[in-house]
């Protein structure tokens, strides 16, 4: 390495853009929603509030509608630069304009409060509606494909503008005597690709380049007792761990 590494400070840090493919800088002036544990460093005067924080009530009522994920999210408030990153995965920002986009809950890092977060009817996915910027992570670069398409559930990052996917099970392969043996014993059978999500209609489907799901961090650490109220919040994490 002949040139020195780049040194960042608040005057050189990009405004709402990537620092490198794995880190994203948000120039905060006001409020942003943030998934817990995705902030790695910040300059300036920023405080982090849980979703249940009283003064945020009006914001929450307009922008956050996901009861099962309440425990996973915080609101960053103040002025300064925040650096977001997620387990050294590729991080990208997307601008949404009067659109809707659904993304795997664990892949969504942060979003501007001009967007409204809703819970998808597919467990473990969150839908963003409105206009604004959000930041999402993927294991490897994201590929955009257009429906009709069938995708592997684990490679799915999210989808935009299309109707919700349906589950496609490769039944033909599991049919008949041979198929029965395959299904019951797993011998010579399961290719591992029997379960697929099927997308039809107009829109875009976002895929990551791996089928390895991110190892989700569990919001409550071992050794801490789980307060009753967050048991529901953990459903989101549980769902993700089950691979939904």
């Amino acid at each position: 390495m002949t040139t020195g590494p780049v040194v960042w400070d608040p005057s050189t840090l990009p405004t709402d853009d990537n620092v490198n493919p794995y880190a994203f800088s948000v120039a905060l002036n006001g409020r942003w929603f943030l998934q817990k544990g995705k902030m790695v460093a910040y300059y300036g005067n920023i405080t982090f509030h849980p979703i249940g924080y009283g003064p945020l009530d009006s914001l929450i009522s307009t922008s956050f509608h996901s009861p099962t994920h309440v425990g996973d999210w915080v609101v960053a408030e103040g002025q300064g630069h925040m650096i977001l990153a997620d387990r050294a995965y590729d991080v990208n920002s997307y601008d949404l304009e009067q659109g809707n986009l659904t993304v795997r809950a664990g892949n969504l890092l942060a979003f501007a409060p001009t967007l409204a977060l809703k819970q998808s009817i597919i467990p473990g996915f969150l839908t963003l509606i409105g206009s604004g910027k959000f930041v999402a992570a993927s294991n490897g670069p994201v590929h955009f494909v257009e429906p009709p398409i069938r995708v592997d559930p684990q490679a799915l990052v999210g989808w935009a503008d299309c109707p919700s996917p349906c589950h496609h099970y490769d039944h033909a392969y599991m049919r008949g005597v041979l198929g029965g043996v395959r299904r019951l014993t797993g011998i010579g059978g399961a290719s591992g690709e029997e379960h697929q999500y099927e997308f039809v209609g107009a829109g875009q489907v976002l895929l990551q380049s791996t089928e390895v799901l991110m190892n989700e961090l569990v919001a409550v650490e071992p050794g801490h007792t789980v307060p009753a109220q967050s048991a529901q919040a953990n459903l989101g994490a549980l769902g993700r761990q089950l691979g939904f």
């Binding site: 960042w8 794995y22 460093a41």
Partner: peptide, 19 residues
Amino acid sequence: SDGPAVILRVAPGLPLRVD
């Protein structure tokens, strides 16, 4: 580092907080 490190400058009057 797990992923390329980001190098951040700290100067007087410019504190940095890190996870």
